[in-house]
Each structure stands twice: as structure tokens, then as C-alpha cells.
């Protein structure tokens, strides 16, 4: 098993919208999660029993039972983190959702990045180790304390450097292009040069004492990867 992805978190998506299941499934699988799906409350509750997911993404509007009621039903027997999805952004709906036992609430339309961030935060908050710590060789990155250590020695990183390292550590040995790194760390709104990536990589190597460029490797003509 890969050292940097200690255990794959299992996420159950209950939504009657096929496109939402496809979107969340495709995105979360790419980010290294195991995704199960159900399109009715009934089949969703069965999947919850059968697969014991680490997190539940639940749509408010289901064809058979109201999402709020499903949430209350689940809370009778389980404390699995629940992220509710809704198309209604009204405050009352949020309050109702949270009072019914949801841990977080996301209103459509949302960015996938935001969904991902909330999923990771919920898993962290649930106290599970899933996705909480990333390790690679003697490098350790704690997402909850945002502490980075190499060979048990703390390393001070800026926010951008931390996020850049997090991206690399999430998919060890995967080659990221400079554009992909720019997209993931700076976001699409950033309209700058890819040189900024090189500058941060250089700073990161210096702080991690990676002088031989063994830890963060340059793949000529493509980009960077963590390890070979």
C-alpha cells in the first residue's frame, strides 16, 4: 500500500440526479476517494448499512423520502459525517438541515473545489486519520495542524508552499504540469505566468533541504513530481 494515501476514505453519495452522482463520483475518485452511490433514500440507507462509509453526501431532494427525514433517520443509529447538498440557499433550509443532524451544508451551484475542501475538513473533524496526515518517506504533512516535518524536524512553509506540497503529496510519483499546479494551488482566477510555480518549487526545495532534487523531481518538458 502506498505510504502517502494511508487508507482510502469511502464516501457514499445519495442523490437522484444522475449528473450530480457522475460529477461527485468522477471528481472524488480522481482525488483518491472510494465513491459509492445511490439514487433513492431506500437504496442509500441499504448502502449505508452494507458499506459503512466514512462520509455521506446527501441531497435534500430525493424522490422517495425528503433528505431532511433521511438525515434524521440516519442520526438515530449512526454518527457518520453528513454533508447535505441543496439547491435552496435559504437560511431556514440551512438551519433545518443542520438541526436534522447534518454536519455541513453546501448550496448549489458550488465549485467542486469547495465540495472537496468540505469533504476533507469533515473527515478531519471526524477525528479519523483518513486524509488527515500525508506522509512520504521521511516527510510528514499534518492537514489539521498544518505542520510539516522532515525527519522529525519542523519545516516552516508559507501558505502557497504548504498547498503546493500538499498537492504533490496527495499523488506521489504523479507528474503534475506547471499549469495543473497553477490551477490547483492558485486557482483559475490567477492570470499569471507559470514561472511562479518554479519559484515556489525552488523555495520549497531549499526549506526541505532537498538540494539533490531527489524529493521533488523535475520532469523535463512536463513538470514536477514527488519522488520517482
Amino acid at each position: 500500500m502506498d505510504d502517502a494515501t494511508p487508507l482510502r476514505s469511502r464516501i457514499l453519495v445519495i442523490d437522484d440526479e444522475e449528473s450530480m452522482i457522475e460529477l461527485i463520483g468522477m471528481g472524488l475518485q480522481y482525488e483518491g476517494f472510494e465513491v459509492l452511490s445511490a439514487n433513492t433514500a431506500k437504496s442509500g440507507l441499504q448502502a449505508l448499512q452494507a458499506h459503512a462509509p466514512h462520509l455521506l453526501i446527501l441531497d435534500c431532494m430525493l424522490p422517495d423520502v425528503d433528505g431532511i427525514a433521511v438525515c434524521q433517520t440516519i442520526r438515530l443509529t449512526s454518527s457518520v459525517p453528513i454533508l447535505m447538498l441543496t439547491a435552496k440557499g435559504e437560511l431556514d433550509d440551512k438551519v433545518t438541515g443542520l438541526e436534522a443532524g447534518a454536519d455541513d451544508y453546501l448550496a448549489k451551484p458550488f465549485k467542486f473545489r469547495e465540495l472537496l475542501a468540505r469533504v476533507r475538513a469533515l473527515l478531519r473533524r471526524a477525528g479519523s486519520d483518513y486524509g488527515n496526515q500525508l506522509t512520504f518517506a521521511d516527510l510528514r504533512l499534518d492537514l489539521s495542524t498544518r505542520a510539516v516535518t522532515r525527519d522529525s524536524e519542523p519545516v516552516e512553509l508559507t501558505r502557497r508552499e504548504f498547498e503546493l506540497l500538499e498537492q504533490l503529496m496527495r499523488r506521489p510519483r504523479h507528474v503534475f504540469s506547471r499549469e495543473q499546479i497553477l490551477d490547483r494551488v492558485w486557482g483559475w482566477e490567477f492570470a499569471g505566468d507559470t514561472n511562479v510555480v518554479d519559484v515556489h518549487i525552488a523555495a520549497l526545495r531549499a526549506k526541505l533541504r532537498d538540494n539533490e532534487r531527489r524529493l521533488i523531481r523535475t520532469v523535463r518538458g512536463v513538470g514536477y513530481s514527488l519522488g520517482a
Binding site: E17, S19, M20, E22, L23, I24, M26, G27, Y30, A87, K108, P109, F110, K111, F112, R113, S177, Q180, D183, R184, W188
Partner: peptide
């Protein structure tokens, strides 16, 4: 909102590769 989320979400996933 649902189709809008799907369209922007899929575009986002394609963009990040």
C-alpha cells in the same frame, strides 16, 4: 441550479485534468 452545478463542476474537473 442542479444542471448548472453539473456543467461548471465537470468543466472544473476537466480543467484540473
Amino acid at each position: 441550479k442542479t444542471p448548472l452545478t453539473a456543467v461548471t463542476g465537470m468543466a472544473e474537473l476537466l480543467r484540473v485534468g
